[in-house]
Simulated assay, not measured.
Amino acid sequence: MMENQRTEYIQAEDYERSEGRRTQRNGYYERDLTTRVGTLELRVPRTRDDAFSPTVFERYQRNEKSLLASMLEMYISGVPTRKVSKIVEELCGKSVSKSFVSSLTEQLDPLVKEWQNRSLSDKNYPYLITDVVYIKIREDNRVLSKSCHIAIGITEDGDREIIGFMIQNEESDDTWSVFFEYLKDRGLKGPSLVISDVHKGLVSAIRKSFTNTSWQRGQVHFLRKIFSSIPKKDSKPFKEAVKAIFKFTDIELARTAKNVLVSEYSDQKKYSKACEILDNGFEDAFQYTVIGAGHNRLKSTNLLERLNQEIRRREKIIRIFPNRASTNRLIGAVLMDLHDEWLSSTKKYIKFDQ
């Protein structure tokens, strides 16, 4: 069959002189073809122009592409490369080395890099949610903790997008500034509100990088800090009063309730520290009521923390990344996957018309 197909491709029989001849025969090469009933050792005819391929391999090539795509999907889902090779061996009866799986995953690098550096200039992101997640990376036979800065943008239409991530050596004023400049270089316009928790150097970097931008302090962590400064015993009335303040979406009402609580409890020694924390951090914790029209999803970093959990789920399997390149590859692939999932959703994350 392959010989007949080569003859049809060349448009001439063996030793036939023909004006319609496309090319010349060029011997054979050996190739295995794995089928359901075993492996066939084939002598495959070839042509001098190297453009001929028997149709017997078309299905094989399609299956091979599907298999490679499935292997990449397993890797992105957090399956270790060693286990990927075992799964392929069980499915196909052929073993693939761990190093082959690793080299295959490198095909993701240009895709991740392109997505990581795509332009942001065609959209406005009035709300920016930022956070950092720490991962372990092996460098020069040492296991080091690295920071991965991540940003989510909320568009004017209420859609959420992962707009950037960057792996750096630490978390500081300088690294946050570098991260924000990276976003701005790609076309990010100054957001109206940046939502984050109190990370080292972050608030300072926001003020330096984004002028005329408000900072919304994550309320969940803020509440935890307040409650961590009071005794557990007999503190329920105080806790309930504080929680009631954080239910307001009108800053004036919230401020009035806060002032009443502070005046009532600040003279009590066991609540004085909590009242001080609440009073000092109140304005930053309620900026979403002024800038974000009181939308509850803008008062915390819960969205990004759920995203961080997806990264953590993969990290628990890998435990220690072998190098920075593999870290960028896997985290980037995971974030790309989630980003595409968000874009395909028909639901708005925030409905600004309400």
Results as ranks from 00 to 15, higher is better:
A51E: 10
I317H: 06
I162S: 01
T289H: 04
E89L: 09
E156D: 13
K225P: 05
Y288K: 06
D14Y: 15
Y265L: 04
G27M: 10
L223A: 12
D32F: 15
D157E: 15
L307C: 02
M336H: 00
L193M: 06
I277N: 10
N117R: 01
T23H: 04
E264F: 15
P45V: 11
S209Y: 04
S235F: 07
L202R: 09
Q216W: 15
I331T: 00
K200R: 01
A69M: 14
L33Y: 07
E310R: 08
L108K: 14
N323S: 13
E89P: 06
S103I: 15
W115K: 04
Y75W: 05
K232N: 11
H199C: 05
N4W: 06
R21L: 10
M166T: 01
E30C: 11
Y134F: 13
A325E: 08
L304N: 01
N280V: 08
D173K: 15
I162Q: 01
I129D: 06
L68Y: 11
A254V: 07
P110Q: 05
K258Y: 10
R59Y: 00
V133M: 01
T7P: 06
L335A: 00
F238E: 00
V44W: 07
L72N: 04
S145R: 00
I350C: 10
L67F: 08
S235H: 09
Y288Q: 14
W115M: 01
F210R: 03
K208I: 07
C148D: 00
V194M: 13
E73A: 11
E114C: 06
D14A: 12
R186Y: 11
V220H: 06
Q116R: 04
V178I: 15
A325Y: 12
L188T: 14
F282I: 03
A241R: 09
V260A: 06
N323I: 00
N4D: 03
D122H: 12
T249N: 07
D279A: 11
E106S: 02
I87R: 01
R31T: 11
S95G: 08
S172Y: 01
N26H: 13
E73R: 14
E276W: 01
E341M: 14
T211K: 13
V178E: 12
K236Y: 10
R21C: 14
